[in-house]
Design a protein around this nucleic acid. Sequence first.
DNA 1: TCCGGGATAGAAAGCGCTTTCTGTCGGCGA
DNA 2: TCGCCGACAGAAAGCGCTTTCTATCCCGGA
Lengths: 348, 348
Amino acid sequence: MTVTLADVAARARVSPATVSRVLNGNYPVAAATRERVLRAVEELDYVLNGTASSLAAATSDLVGVLVHDIADPFFGIMASAAQHAIGEGGSGRAGGEKLAVVCNTGGSPERELTYLTLLQRQRAAAVILMGGGLEDPVHLDATAAKLARMAEAGTRVVLCGRPPVPGDAHTAALVFDNRTGGRLLAEHLLGLGHRRIGYAAGPADRTTTRHRLDGHRQALAAAGVPEGPTTHGPYDRVSGHAAVAELFARDPDLTAIVAANDTVALGVCAALRERGLTIPGDVSVAGFDDLPFSVDAVPALTTVHLPLHGSGTRAGRLAMGTEEPPADGTVPVPCTLVVRDSTAPPRA
Amino acid sequence: MTVTLADVAARARVSPATVSRVLNGNYPVAAATRERVLRAVEELDYVLNGTASSLAAATSDLVGVLVHDIADPFFGIMASAAQHAIGEGGSGRAGGEKLAVVCNTGGSPERELTYLTLLQRQRAAAVILMGGGLEDPVHLDATAAKLARMAEAGTRVVLCGRPPVPGDAHTAALVFDNRTGGRLLAEHLLGLGHRRIGYAAGPADRTTTRHRLDGHRQALAAAGVPEGPTTHGPYDRVSGHAAVAELFARDPDLTAIVAANDTVALGVCAALRERGLTIPGDVSVAGFDDLPFSVDAVPALTTVHLPLHGSGTRAGRLAMGTEEPPADGTVPVPCTLVVRDSTAPPRA
DNA sequence: TCCGGGATAGAAAGCGCTTTCTGTCGGCGA
DNA sequence: TCGCCGACAGAAAGCGCTTTCTATCCCGGA
């Protein structure tokens, strides 16, 4: 049926062991023999059976990358960078590369667990979890437990943009400084003179959402400015669009709106325009993440830049073991404010 | 070390065979026995070894989804939909789901082949290739040959947005009617009165690019309007931005620009604005794909809608075997024109 | 000339599961 | 009452590879 290693061995007139050694290259084989084997491989069009190989060697070439939503550029960029880093990062078993696979959890903890189990089944070499976790302690625990077990079994675990599990020594974590990001944005608006700032936040139960909000509130409190209205919704434009009505209902005199991220900001802008309001003339709008389209938005979005690409790359390297994590496993990732055209001093 | 099926069997006081049967559920097992086994699984926290299972059963739960670039929403949306369809689509072996893995080829045929080999190694259950192929016959042949071999070995192959391989009976293909899309867009602009239309096209060597361009030219020819300047570049905003200077250099009197896709259109708009030109007052701009941000662009983009989500879902179903492909394996996907604010009659 | 040892290659024992082939047992028709 | 059959469970033979343990060969040094 399909060509097996034994067939290659027969054709090259060597033992299966030798073929395996040629393929894996971690044992001396005479040049002539190697040549013969490689020719046989070529002639028979042999493809190694990865499942058998993984089984026998008790390791695999699979690296899982779990994201909330691939279609969201935030994850797309990080995942893509990680996959690239993993592809580059030296050869896996059998002279091949690692297979970096990205899986969509849809932000659902159940799916996340399902995928983790699947990856665990495949004895994945590493797993990268991208994106904020849930605040819900039940799910947190379940996930943490599973990750701990996987780490124990030799799977490298990397968190990217998600807070580290307290007390877990096995996992490396890249943590975005969302709190500072939120603070910077608020300080920027306060500095421009805004005093009534609405906040179209992300889902209430995610760590990312809370951290950004925390920083925002911290800045307001420090300036002695009362907190404006806040809404919660998914990280999409519809959510931003819907937020506007709600925010204005709760404070008709808003002069600025901070959005959960750039995509939400786009929705906010659209809704403001529909109300006949200009940006930033009537209302200033700020986003988060500095996604690629933000610079082309009209007006170009003031936002908080997150080094998405770089973080994805580092996550990939950590997963490959190419880069060693710091002692405490946590790699802080700074956020920087990017001021563009969507924010300006309030009119009056 | 790790818990194996034999451990579970011992604990449940049954044979390994029985445990396997309980787990796979394709053989009668007495309720009481099943119960006992499941309890043992639970108690020991047993996780099936997917590699062993795949090896023994000669199939796997892996479904590969190859895309040019996850970070591009075009692919993100399709991949995400496909992954969802695959997740839903009934249980894989061992009561689990299929593991849909998406891989970034970066549009490089070498990486595409590498990933295909990796997937072939893993004895993937199916492979979905998303995005236009290369025009280059050498690479086409290499890929086609590999796909044929995989299909022969039982892997289901689905092409999505890529023309079918002529004479290949094994693969199903969802083909976007890019030609009609290009034609519709051109006819729309011609109908508005435009006679000098520039085209910021995608990479010259991709089928998608050529098909869109073909349709565009066909419409111009039918109307007896001479073809305007054309540039080629990647599907990103920078490419669109750069195209503008080039297009105007070749025809300073352009009244409309068609972009390779919406992302490119964004770059075109930005460059036009930098030149002090208004859209659509001075120049009309049209995109392609109807990506989510197009409706929020300012002005909202006239574009060609591609049912990305639906196509991804269908591709997923075809890969799962949930949906049967038509006899000739080709599923045509229609494009529809979406007229928004970025196109208007030319000034004079 | 003889021997120790480095360099290769082979034999064979698994890796952890699936599945075919055999039972075993209780019940039912004759 | 006997025999047959269906329902269930176990034995054991792999699936295709890796890797340890051995064997062989040929070299240089004594």
